[in-house]
Design a protein around this nucleic acid. Structure first.
Lengths: 301, 301
DNA sequence: GCATGGCATCGGAAATCGTGATGGCGCCGA
DNA sequence: TCGGCGCCATCACGATTTCCGATGCCATGC
């Protein structure tokens, strides 16, 4: 028993004639005659009384008609639902964060994704560059914001902006900071990040160029934790300039006048998953939010 | 899109492998691969993600799975319902009556039909032999009780019993009925029936044999009406003997001691509909109630 | 009595479906 | 690192099903 049997059954019941039903179904009368016959034989029930005027539903056929229509309706719903979602992007995407939401423009990204793809489930998972990269590799994340060069061979990424880094110092240390040369800075207490963070690389670069190492006091893996400690007077730290504006204006912190190399904020994903339409949509949305041309996406070095 | 596509879809979703699904469906792996492919192409939706471990439902496929199962369930219900009623007698039958229910053993007949065929709708429609026969011919009745010879060429019938008829007279006429010869009877007032009633034929036969005609007073088409009029003293009438026992015992009526020919009570139907299973079942039930051998059914003369 | 309209049946053509073999692709263990 | 393995996609061919046109039968209506 197949759907076309049921379709024929219902049509014949509605039309009352094999001939008319055949016209409505764009086929021949013998064909639907065979459909009805096959259905009746399979079910062991005579569905119609054959009269000289046409096909009249038997009592059993009348009872079964409703269920046949229900079945066809269910099939129609199925098809309709499928058609409705044929172009719609579905699924879920897990995006790793490496810094605060405002800087990453998450609200705008979420708004854009929500408007374009209402059935897409987006999860923003807090973290850091250091944890995001391995999570990408093992599939715990689908995409992530990272800072640095993006030189992982398995990852692709696009640059969103250059982060301007500065050395921030607590106001309480201003007296000890008469000279701003590197060795003097190294002698002061530092709040440092984990080695897998791009800021750590910047710090290391600066000090290694002068063959000295900073005085490490405490490790803060999370950016806001590091910033809080700097503001609280624990020590110096490397932060994004715009992240410190408020504290600088309030006088709790000052910026050491020394130029640092910038690091790239990137949006990264597993190269081999680049063809996933969900991923492509997210990348496209990120590009839009950061006002990049779509071709700005580039393979990782 | 056919049911087997949906069946394959659901099975693959449940098994997670084309190969296993193929085993469960007793077919080959390329076959169901083609099913899935055809379904996906028709719907424009990828239902599965192909992984090295097998087939994993895509988000769209997961959403559609439930509706596919609903459709299959509806189809299964349809089949089940059909199978359940494949041997069960259904439909409706209209049976014409020509006399009182007790004499026709309607309670027993109804009980038997109800027990054997719970889905059969039975309608007993009051009437008389005279109206039942044309109603049978035009299809207003499916079967009927009639009295007489059943010589209609379109009808078949079986004899249920012989009705013993008597001439009943009101007690008030006893004085005038000293002689019981036919001419004397003809001179008395008669309650007569319509010409299409078998009793009328009996009356006519009796009087025509003696070349005289009864004094007609009033026509009573319905048996109980005739009986009531006889009891009320309106005139003589021809009735079934056992129908008058009560009135005779009560002294309201007496029986004229004259032998009358009997008429046959028959159960009749349209010959060309004799193969209708519903009709056959009803005929069989009537035979049972009247304790006839099934082969007692005979063609009309 | 003939024309009409309805369904059932039949034989051949056409499309469909199923099968077995084959190939590509990841994964895993040696 | 390299076969072996499991899995799915594809192909060509054979078998089955399906469809069509023609025909026949039957009941009805004019």
């Amino acid at each position: 028993m197949e759907l076309y049997h049921l379709k024929t059954f219902v049509t014949v019941a509605e039309e009352g004639h094999l001939t008319r039903a055949a016209e409505r179904l764009f086929t021949s009368q013998p064909a639907i005659s065979a459909h009805i016959k096959a259905l009746e034989e399979e079910l062991g029930v005579t569905l119609f009384e054959r009269t000289p005027k046409g096909m009249q539903l038997s009592p059993a056929g009348a009872q079964l008609l409703a269920q046949a229509q229900r079945t066809l309706a269910a099939a129609g719903d199925f098809k309709l639902a499928a058609r409705a979602m044929q172009d719609e992007l579905m699924g879920s995407v897990r995006i790793g964060l490496n810094t605060d939401a405002r800087f990453l423009r998450l609200v705008e990204l979420q708004a854009l994704l929500g408007a374009r793809y209402p059935r897409l489930e987006v999860a923003f998972l807090g973290g850091s560059t250091g944890v995001n990269v391995p999570n990408l590799r093992v599939g715990k994340l689908d995409a992530a914001f990272i800072s640095g060069e993006g030189d992982d061979p398995l990852l692709s990424s696009q640059v969103l902006c250059e982060e301007e880094l500065v050395i921030a110092a607590p106001a309480g240390l201003r007296d000890q900071l008469t000279a701003c040369d590197v060795p003097a800075l190294a002698a002061l207490p530092w709040v440092y990040t984990s080695p897998d963070c791009a800021h750590y690389g910047v710090m290391r670069t600066v000090f290694e160029a002068h063959c000295c190492a900073p005085e490490k006091v405490v490790l803060a893996n999370q950016e806001d934790a590091l910033r809080g400690m700097v503001e609280a007077g624990v020590g110096l730290g490397i932060v994004r300039r715009d992240d410190m504006r408020e504290a600088v204006a309030a006088g709790r912190v000052f910026i050491v006048p020394r130029q640092l190399p910038t690091v790239s904020l990137r949006f990264a994903w597993l190269t081999k998953r680049a063809n996933d339409p969900v991923l492509r949509a997210v990348i496209e949305a990120v590009s839009t939010v950061w006002q990049l041309a779509p071709e700005a996406a580039r393979e990782a070095g």
